[in-house]
Amino acid sequence: MKNKKTFFTTAIASLILLLTSSCDVVDKFDTIDLNIPMSIDIITIGTETTLTESDTFCLTEFDLYNDNKDKMEEISFVEASYRTTAVSPANLSGNISVELKTEAGLPLFSITIPNDTPAALLNNPIKLALTADQINALNSYVSNLSNQCFEATVSISNMPGGEKTVTGVVDILFKSKIEM
């Protein structure tokens, strides 16, 4: 009888161990980490030697964000890059700056791409090297899930005179935790 009790105790203890392991598995299924990429097109056109163009965008414009926003537990910045998709004239030279502000106009980051020209970035994205403070500012802003809109600005300076067109894209990657 004593042996029986011991074996039942062992069996139940083993089951609890397996149950704990199972609960751990179930917990892992409760959420999913999703990378959410966003691309913002900004076209600068003009004859000035410095051209600046801004675009306001909201996270809700992107399907992946929109599909999951109601189940989103948190969101944070991962990486940003800039690329050009069209440049005219082809040999255009100039220095590019990318700036991101909150909807209310507070700066989150401003990056000048060193030693580059629009044509060099044609379908060749360059990573925007944000400082820790800039990343913190961006994460602090998006951590309030009601802050969903931004203003992105691209400035190209030191260009020659004449008619110019630069079509650029700011790619921003966020990571979010989604409740399943």
């Binding site: 999913i32 980490d33 999703l34 990378n35 959410i36 990429p37 691309s39 991962v78 990486e79 890059s81 690329r83 379908n123 060749n124 994205p125 990573k127 894209v169 790619d171 990657l173």
Partner: peptide, 16 residues
């Protein structure tokens, strides 16, 4: 971790 890859059409992302 799900990886991401930068390229001429933006980021290609993979799930965690």
């Amino acid at each position: 971790e799900g990886a991401y890859y930068s390229g001429p059409e933006g980021y290609i992302v993979f799930p965690a």
